[in-house]
Design a binder for these strands. Structure first.
Length: 866
RNA sequence: GCGGGCGUGAUGGAAUGGUAGACAUACCAGACUUAAAAUCUGGAGGGCGUAAGCCCGUGUGGGUUCGAGUCCCACCGCCCGCACCA
C-alpha cells in the first residue's frame, strides 16, 4: 500500500488541470453560466491564511457548479494601486511599480500550489496600463454623462506630506505618517455624483435577497435617508443705535433643515457652520470672527476628533425672527459642531429637545424651553435634554399656547404638514450620503485624464491618447519618493501637454484616482480582460452578473456601494447591460482566520510575544519550550505580525499539502464566522485525509462481490450525497465536512461487498472533491475511473434510496423522554400509540395514571400527556 | 446615543418547534509494540446510584405550547456598524 504524499499528488494533478486547461472560461451559450468571484487581493507580497479561506470558499462553489453542468467563470487579479507601494518606496527606496509587480509574482507563486480552479489567463492588475487606460476611458464617458464633476470641498490636509488624507489616515487629529496636525482645507477636487443615486441605491437594497441582511442594513444607514422641513429664518435689519448687528447684504434669510419641526417652538438660537456663506462674509469683515472660524475649523473630520471637540460658539450679534412669531428674535451663532456638508449648513437650536443644543445653550446661557409641556410649565428647569419620540404629543407653547398640534401617529409628519399649511417652509428629503471625492495627490494611482488649459479650461483628454501612463522616471533620473508631495506635480515634463481642444501648451491634471475606483468595475473587466474598450458587450451580457461574490465584511459599505454606483454608471454609458444594474446577485461575507497569541512578560511588565512553534501545549496551558515558563494565552485573536501569531499558508502546504489547508479552513466554524487556526486541528485534518487515502486504496484493492450489507451502505451513501450537496449549496461547508467524516467512518466499518464499497468510495471522492480536489483526483484514478474527477458530473441523491424502513421514536411523558420504540416507517398512528403505551418503561412511569392525550408525530416522536 | 447580531460541554461548534451536545479538538482507557510514534477500538454534560434508573442542564427571570436551544416579553453580558447628520 502506498502512502498519502500530498506533495507528489498535488503537483501531479495541478499539472494535469493546466495541461487540459480545464478552468479556462469560454463563452458557451448552450450551457448555463456561473460567475463566482472572491474580492481580489492587494499585492502586499504574502498570501495570508485569510486569503486561503476566502479563495477556498469560492473554489468549492466554483468546482461544485462546474460539476453540476455550469460554465464557470472564476478569475483572479490584483488591486494593485495604493499607498503601501509608495510607502515602501519612501522607506526602502526603489519604485512602487517594481515593488508591486514583484509582489504580484510572489503571490501568484504562493497561490498556485493551492490548486484553485482559477482561469489564470484572465489575470490582470489594476496598475496595468491596459486596465487603467480603460478606466480613464470610463472616466471620460462618466464625465460626458454628467456623473463626474469638480467642486471645492473641505478635506483633511497633511501640511508636512502635502497631501490629502482619508479619514482613516487621521489619528488623533494628526497625520498617520507625518504626525503633523491635520488641517481642514478647501480644495478643488473631482467627485462622482453618487448622491444623485441615493434613493435608488437605497430602494434597490430591498430586492437584494441574497445579500446578508447586515450588509444591506449598513448600507441603508450609510445612505441615511431622512424626511424633514426646510425653511428660512429672516434676519433682522437693526437701527443704527442698536448694539445688535445688521446682516451683511444678501443675507436677509438663513435656510435651515430640521427633522424635528415638532420642536420648532422650543427654538432658542440659530447656528451656522464656520463654512456657511454668512460666516465667510463676516470672516472677511471682522478679524474676531476670522479668528474664531479658524479655530473652529481646526482638527480633523474624523468621528473621534469631533467627539473630543468642545462646543464652541460665536455670537455674531445678528438676530433673526421666528417664523411663527415675528416679534420673537433669536441670536445667530457660528458654531463649530455644524457641518456645512449636511443639510443647509445651518440649524435652529432647540436645547430642550436636543442633547447637543442643550450642551451649547448651557455653555452660552441661552433659554431652554420645552415644547412638550403645557405653556405654564414650559420654563421648568431641565437637567438634560428630553429627546421625544417622533410621535409624542406636541404643544406649541409660544404663540400657540397649549394648542396640541399632533393628531396622527407621527408628530413629525403632522408638524411638517402644519408648517407647510402655514407657509413656513416645505417638506424635504435629505440623504447622509455625500458625493464620492476621487482625487488623490498621490503618484501610484490611475491618472485623471484631463488637461487644464488657460483658454479652454478643464478639457477631457482625447480617447486616442489613452492610456495616460504614469512616468517611471523623473526626467531621466529615478523619482525620489522621499520628498513629500506628489511626484507628478514636480515632474519636469510630464505635466506639459498640448491642449486637446486648442492645441496650445497646457498642463495635465496631476491628481490620481482613489484606488476604490479601480475596484469598482474590475468584476466587469474580467468578462473580457483583453477588450480594447472597458468591456465587450457580448461577453458582459453573457457572464454578468457575478452570481456569487465572496469577501470580507470590512467592504460592506465603501467598495460594495461604489461598485453598485459604478454598475449604474456603466449601464448609462453603455458598458454594461441593463440587467447589471446590481452587479452582484449574491454576496457572502466570510469570517477571519484567527490564531491564539502566546505571551510572557519582561522585567518591566511589558508583554513578550512568542511564535506558536516556540510554545508547547499541555492540558490547555502553554509553556515555552525554552525554559518552560508558562505563557498567557489569548485565544482567537486576529493575526498580526507584531503579536507573532501569523500562520503562513506556504508553511502549511510544505508540511501537510494544500488539501489539508483547504479542508481545515472550512471545517470547524460556519464560514461567516471566524475560525481559529490550531496546529492540532491542521494535524488532525492531515491524519484524516491520510485515513481516507488508506481506506480507499484498501477498497480499490479488494475483490468484487456482494453482501447483505450492501443496501445499508448505499443508503448511507445517498444520504451523504444529499447532505453534502445541501451543505455545499448553501455555504454550510462545516456541516458538509461533518457529514463526510461520518460517511468515511461508515464506509470504513461497513461489511458490504467490494462492488458497493467501490461505489461508495467513488462517491466519497466526488463529494470531497470541491474541498480536496487533488486527493480526490488520486482516489478517482485509484478506483479505476477514467478522466478527471474535476470534469465528472456531481452525484445525485436518489430519494427512494434514502428512506429508512424503520424509525426510532422517542416516547415522552409530559415532555420528558422515558422510552423509545423502533417501528415501521409507515405504521399507523393508532398502532404507534398502542405500542408506545404498552412499553414497560411507559407503564412504570405512568404508574396507573390515565393519559389525557397522546400526540403522535409520525416518524418523529410520541408524547403522552397525563 | 442610534442600529444590528450573538450567549449551548474543557474548546470550535451541530440541532425544518420534536431524543440537546452531531462532527472535530483536547482528555481518558484498551489493542498492537521491548518501547515510542503511527494506527485501530472504546469512553466521556453535571449530580446521586453497584446497577436499573432518577434529578438537573442551552446567560438570567417570566410567558406561549402536548413539547422551547429554537417563538414572545424583560433583564444581564459580549461583539459589530454608525454617529456633534440638525
Amino acid at each position: 500500500m502506498t502512502r498519502y504524499t500530498p506533495a507528489e499528488i498535488e503537483a501531479k494533478w495541478q499539472a494535469a488541470w493546466e495541461k487540459d486547461e480545464v478552468f479556462k472560461a469560454v463563452r458557451d451559450t448552450s450551457r448555463p453560466k456561473y460567475y463566482v468571484l472572491e474580492m481580489f487581493p492587494y499585492p502586499s507580497g504574502r498570501i495570508h491564511i485569510g486569503h486561503v479561506r476566502n479563495y477556498t470558499m469560492g473554489d468549492v462553489v466554483s468546482r461544485y457548479k462546474r460539476a453540476t453542468g455550469h460554465n464557470v467563470l472564476h478569475p483572479m487579479g490584483f488591486d494593485a494601486f495604493g499607498m503601501p507601494a509608495e510607502n515602501a518606496a519612501m522607506k526602502m527606496g526603489g519604485h512602487p511599480k517594481d515593488w508591486t509587480y514583484s509582489n504580484i509574482d510572489d503571490m501568484v507563486t504562493q497561490m498556485k500550489p493551492m490548486g484553485f480552479s482559477l482561469d489564470w489567463s484572465r489575470m490582470f492588475a489594476t496598475c496595468d496600463p491596459e486596465y487603467y487606460g480603460q478606466q480613464q476611458a470610463l472616466f471620460l464617458d462618466f464625465l460626458e454623462a454628467g456623473l463626474v464633476y469638480r467642486k471645492n470641498a473641505v478635506v483633511n490636509w497633511d501640511p508636512v506630506d502635502m497631501t490629502v488624507l482619508a479619514n482613516e489616515q487621521v489619528i488623533d487629529g494628526k497625520g498617520w505618517r507625518s504626525d503633523a496636525e491635520v488641517e481642514r482645507r478647501e480644495l478643488t477636487q473631482w467627485f462622482f455624483k453618487i448622491s444623485d443615486y441615493s434613493d435608488e441605491l437605497l430602494s434597490a437594497l430591498e430586492t437584494m435577497d441574497n445579500w446578508p441582511a447586515k450588509v444591506r442594513l449598513m448600507q441603508e444607514n450609510w445612505i441615511g435617508k431622512s424626511r424633514g422641513l426646510q425653511f428660512a429664518f429672516s434676519t433682522v435689519a437693526q437701527p443704527e443705535d442698536n448694539d445688535k448687528i445688521s446682516p451683511p447684504e444678501g443675507h436677509d434669510r438663513i435656510e435651515v433643515y430640521t427633522t424635528r419641526p415638532d420642536t420648532l417652538m422650543g427654538a432658542s438660537f440659530v447656528g451656522i457652520s464656520p463654512d456657511h456663506p454668512l460666516a465667510k462674509q463676516l470672516e472677511r469683515d471682522n478679524p474676531e470672527v476670522a479668528a474664531f472660524c479658524a479655530a473652529a475649523r481646526k482638527g480633523g473630520t474624523t468621528a473621534e476628533a469631533i467627539e473630543k471637540a468642545d462646543k464652541m460658539g460665536f455670537d455674531t450679534g445678528i438676530t433673526c425672527r421666528h417664523p411663527f412669531d415675528t416679534a420673537w428674535e433669536l441670536p445667530v451663532y457660528i458654531a463649530n459642531f455644524i457641518l456645512m456638508e449636511y443639510g443647509t449648513g445651518a440649524i435652529f437650536g432647540c436645547p430642550a429637545h436636543d442633547e447637543r443644543d442643550f450642551e451649547f445653550a448651557t455653555k452660552y446661557g441661552l433659554p431652554i424651553t420645552s415644547t412638550f409641556l403645557p405653556a405654564e410649565d414650559a420654563e421648568e428647569v431641565l437637567s438634560k435634554a428630553f429627546v421625544p419620540t417622533k410621535s409624542e404629543t406636541v404643544y406649541y407653547n409660544r404663540g400657540f399656547a397649549g394648542e396640541k398640534l399632533q393628531t396622527g401617529a407621527d408628530g413629525v409628519d403632522a408638524a411638517v404638514d402644519f408648517c407647510e399649511a402655514n407657509g413656513v417652509g416645505q417638506a424635504v428629503t435629505k440623504f447622509r450620503l455625500r458625493d464620492w471625492g476621487l482625487s488623490r495627490q498621490r503618484y501610484w494611482g490611475c491618472p485623471i485624464p484631463v488637461v487644464h488649459c488657460e483658454t479652454c479650461g478643464v478639457v477631457p483628454e482625447k480617447k486616442e491618447n489613452l492610456p495616460i501612463q504614469l512616468p517611471y522616471d523623473e526626467g531621466g533620473a529615478p523619482i525620489d519618493f522621499s520628498i513629500p508631495g506628489n511626484p507628478l506635480d514636480r515632474h519636469p515634463t510630464w505635466r506639459n501637454v498640448a491642449c486637446p481642444s486648442c492645441g496650445a501648451p497646457a498642463l495635465r491634471e496631476t491628481d490620481t484616482m482613489d484606488t476604490f475606483v479601480d475596484s469598482s468595475w474590475y468584476f466587469a473587466r474580467f468578462t473580457a480582460p483583453d477588450a480594447d474598450t472597458p468591456t465587450r458587450m457580448e461577453d458582459a451580457d453573457y457572464w454578468m452578473n457575478v452570481d456569487q461574490y465572496i469577501g470580507g465584511i470590512e467592504h460592506a459599505i465603501l467598495h460594495l456601494l461604489y461598485s453598485r454606483f459604478f454598475a449604474r454608471g456603466m449601464q448609462i454609458t453603455g458598458h454594461l447591460p441593463s440587467k447589471s444594474i446590481e452587479p452582484f446577485d449574491a454576496l457572502f461575507t466570510q469570517g477571519m482566520v484567527t490564531h491564539a497569541i502566546y505571551s510572557t512578560q519582561d522585567a518591566a511588565g511589558r508583554p513578550v510575544y512568542h511564535y506558536p512553534e516556540a510554545v508547547e501545549l499541555k492540558d490547555g496551558k502553554a509553556f515555552l519550550k525554552d525554559g518552560g515558563a508558562e505563557c498567557q494565552i489569548v485565544p482567537s485573536a486576529k493575526m498580526s505580525k507584531s503579536k507573532n501569531n501569523v500562520v503562513d499558508p506556504v508553511n502549511i502546504i510544505d508540511s501537510y499539502g494544500a488539501d489539508t489547508a483547504r479542508w481545515f479552513v472550512l471545517s470547524d466554524s460556519p464560514p461567516e464566522r471566524d475560525v481559529e487556526w490550531t496546529a492540532s486541528g491542521a494535524e488532525a485534518t492531515f491524519k484524516h485525509l491520510g485515513r481516507v487515502f488508506r481506506i480507499v486504496s484498501d477498497i480499490a484493492a479488494s475483490p468484487p462481490g456482494t453482501t447483505a450489507d450492501d443496501a445499508e451502505l448505499l443508503k448511507e451513501m445517498h444520504k451523504a450525497i444529499h447532505d453534502v450537496t445541501m451543505g455545499v449549496d448553501s455555504f454550510g461547508f462545516n456541516a458538509a465536512i461533518a457529514k463526510l467524516y461520518g460517511f468515511t467512518s461508515t464506509l470504513a466499518k461497513s461489511k458490504a461487498g467490494g462492488d458497493a464499497k467501490r461505489e461508495a468510495a467513488k462517491t466519497l471522492a466526488q463529494l470531497m472533491s470541491p474541498m480536496t480536489p487533488h486527493l480526490s483526483e488520486e482516489l478517482w484514478t485509484m478506483l479505476g475511473q477514467d478522466g478527471l474527477i474535476t470534469q465528472a458530473s456531481w452525484p445525485v441523491a436518489d430519494p427512494a434510496m434514502m428512506v429508512d424502513d424503520t424509525v426510532t421514536m422517542p416516547i415522552q411523558i409530559n415532555g420528558k423522554r422515558r422510552a423509545e420504540i423502533s417501528v415501521a416507517k409507515d405504521m399507523p398512528k393508532e398502532e404507534v400509540e398502542k405500542l408506545a403505551l404498552s412499553q414497560d418503561a411507559v407503564i412504570r412511569a405512568l404508574d396507573g395514571a390515565v393519559p389525557k392525550k397522546v400526540i403522535v408525530v409520525p416518524g418523529r416522536i410520541v408524547n403522552v400527556v397525563v
